[in-house]
Structure formats: structure tokens, C-alpha cells
Nucleic acid binder design. Structure first.
Length: 336
DNA sequence: CAGATTTGACCACA
DNA sequence: TGTGGTCAAATCTG
């Protein structure tokens, strides 16, 4: 099991356990703070898990460019190549991926750290093309790179061409998330600190909500070919499929099940999460168009990659609570 | 001050 | 020779 998969499993398991704990705390005599903490932690866990599933930031569609002749492939395939073949352009066609991402805020973060190494005015294009490579190209030998160019037709659309696999450990460049201790005893919990965390939590939830609102109004996704390859999301173990619902619209199947969608925000240092009860309107707000009837995948950034506004809480005080496997997860009122 | 970005130059390919 | 991809010094930024 790779790193992402184990992390995903961990978050989902934790979310389920916490949900069960919350179920126990729904009793009127239970302290409301505990319920809030539990609820938040549940949401955090699912946000993290889903963010691992939704990697690319916004709902982006990829367009495989196999043997493309419209754009030159990247110049070299590894760091040592330049020693022997400086600035050489490869002639053989290599697979690349193209996504068209629409954002009013500029190119989107996709969960990886990119470093811009060049920009070029392209003949016939109104906007220059930016060249990015993985920040960890030399530190970890990650060969992933991408080209970003604003669309002439619709300047709000960024055409992103990916190339190469990410071999870097994305967790290595994230701010370390505090792993809640599960062995700390309840007696050691500082209640004033708990209260402070509660305030911080509320503030950050509010911020996330505000970001979400702006996101919902500003996002538009244009879809072409719907086929994401492992080149872009090499270790993503699942495939989330969409289905056509008419008018050329694709709607993510999992939306029907109140699956939340986690997306990196427009800045590098933040992303926000969409809670399950936001998902319905969020999904419907998507202007998802497609010219092909292929399957859609939606990937977003893993939680551990970016500086999440989600607060990591200490659940040590919850350890003694029982786990109730029969807790009604599917109750919509549960999250409200 | 380290890391990221900008930008002109260099290079290979068509 | 024009174009696109990359390098690397200069500059910017936190």
C-alpha cells in the first residue's frame, strides 16, 4: 500500500470512528463542545480523505495528447540529460496531458509545488506560455513538469499540459500536520487551550466558507476529453467516474451520495474544503461541459500537501469514548 | 538569505 | 531561419 492510499484509509477510518463517537455524544447530557470538536474532526478526516481523491484542484478534465504534434514535447527526460544534450528538444512524441482549467483567480494549484523556469511568447497566441517543473526536480529527482497557457478564446481558461510523473514525496514539502495523539489521557487536556482551539476552528471554518462562496461564483470548467492518466496522478488508486445527465453535462456520480469535494484554493498556501452539505449546490454550480462522452475523473489535492486551514485538533479527550459501528452515517441531519 | 520569479540568451528541431 | 523549450543571471519576495 502506498503512502496516499494508507493515508486515505487512515482518514476514512478515523472519520468513521469519530462519527460513532459523536453519535454517543448526541445525548443531551453530553457537553456541546465535545460534539463540536467531534464534528469538526469528522469533517476534517473526510475532507482530507476526499482531498486525496480530488487532486487537481478544481474540476478539471484532461486531454491526452498522444503523439501530439501541435506542441513540442519537453526537452529532456532527466536531470542528467542536459549534461550531454543541452537544451535539446526531443523529436519523439511523448505522452502528455492537457487540462483546461477555468479560474478567475489565475492558474490553479494542483497539490504539487511547481517552480517556474521559463516563459515564452507563443506565435499566434495572445498570452505567453509558462514553463514549470516540480520544485523537487533536483532534490528528489522528480521529473514532472507542466506548461500553462491562458486560452485565447477564453482568457479565464488556463490550458495546462502536464508531462512526466511526480516521483517526489508530496508530503515532504507540506507543513507537517500534527498527528493527534491517541494515547494522551483526558486529564492532561488543557481546557483553556481547548477553548482557544475552538475559537480558531470557528474562525477558520468561517474563512473556508467565504472562500467557498467566492469559488462557487467564480469557477467554470471547460471539459474536453475526459481521460486522466497516471502520468498526472501516478499514485491515485481510485477512479471517480461521472455520468452524463443530459445537455452534455457531466455530474460526478458520487455527488449523489453526499460525497464532499475538496479542492485547493487559488493561492498556493491555502485550499478549502467543501462540506458534504455544500456539495450539492457546488456540483450543480459547476458549468461542466464536455464534447466527448468519455468518463470524467475529478482529482484534487491531498490534504497533507498544502497548508490546510483545517485545524488539527487533539482528540486525546475522546479516546475513552466508545466506538459505535451502527451510527447512522447517512443521516443528512447528522452534519447539520 | 534562501527560494521563487523574470527575462534575455542559447540551443535544437522543423 | 523561425519557433519553442530551457538555462541561468538578475531580480524579487518573504
Amino acid at each position: 500500500m502506498d503512502w496516499e492510499q494508507s493515508s486515505l484509509l487512515k482518514e476514512l477510518t478515523q472519520g468513521r470512528e469519530l462519527s460513532s463517537l459523536l453519535g454517543k455524544h448526541l445525548h443531551p447530557s453530553a457537553p456541546p463542545q465535545t460534539r463540536q470538536v467531534l464534528l469538526h474532526k469528522i469533517l476534517c478526516s473526510y475532507d482530507k480523505a476526499l482531498s486525496m481523491l480530488n487532486w487537481s484542484g478544481f474540476m478539471v478534465e484532461t486531454k491526452p495528447i498522444l503523439g501530439s504534434t501541435s506542441t513540442a514535447p519537453f526537452a529532456y527526460s532527466d536531470a542528467s540529460h542536459k549534461i550531454h544534450s543541452f537544451k535539446k528538444r526531443k523529436t519523439c512524441s511523448e505522452r502528455s496531458e492537457q487540462v483546461r482549467v477555468c479560474s478567475l483567480e489565475g492558474p490553479l494549484e494542483d497539490g504539487y509545488c511547481w517552480r517556474k523556469y521559463g516563459q515564452k511568447d507563443i506565435l499566434g497566441s495572445n498570452f505567453p506560455r509558462g514553463y514549470y517543473r516540480c520544485t523537487h526536480r533536483y532534490s528528489q529527482g522528480c521529473l514532472a513538469a507542466k506548461q500553462v497557457q491562458r486560452s485565447d478564446e477564453d482568457p479565464t481558461i488556463f490550458e495546462v499540459k502536464y508531462r512526466g510523473r511526480h516521483t517526489c514525496n508530496r508530503a515532504s514539502h507540506s507543513i507537517a500536520t500534527k498527528v493527534p495523539s491517541t494515547t494522551e489521557s483526558e486529564e492532561n487536556v488543557d481546557h483553556s487551550r481547548e477553548k482557544q482551539q475552538q475559537q480558531q476552528l470557528e474562525e477558520k471554518q468561517k474563512q473556508s466558507k467565504e472562500i467557498l462562496m467566492s469559488f462557487e461564483t467564480g469557477l467554470k470548467v471547460k471539459t474536453e476529453d475526459l481521460d486522466i492518466r497516471d502520468d498526472i496522478f501516478p499514485s491515485f488508486p481510485f477512479r471517480i467516474e461521472s455520468e452524463e445527465v443530459g445537455n452534455g453535462l457531466f455530474v460526478k456520480s458520487l455527488m449523489e451520495n453526499d460525497i464532499s469535494f475538496v479542492s485547493p484554493a487559488v493561492s498556493e498556501s491555502n485550499y478549502f474544503s467543501v462540506s458534504p452539505f455544500h456539495m450539492g449546490s457546488f456540483g450543480l454550480a459547476q458549468n461542466v461541459q464536455t464534447s466527448e462522452s468519455d468518463l470524467t475523473e475529478m482529482i484534487s489535492a491531498p490534504t497533507s500537501v498544502t497548508n490546510s486551514p483545517i485545524v488539527d485538533l487533539d482528540i486525546s479527550s475522546l479516546d475513552k469514548l466508545e466506538f459505535d459501528p451502527s451510527f447512522p452515517f447517512d443521516n443528512p441531519d447528522f452534519f447539520t
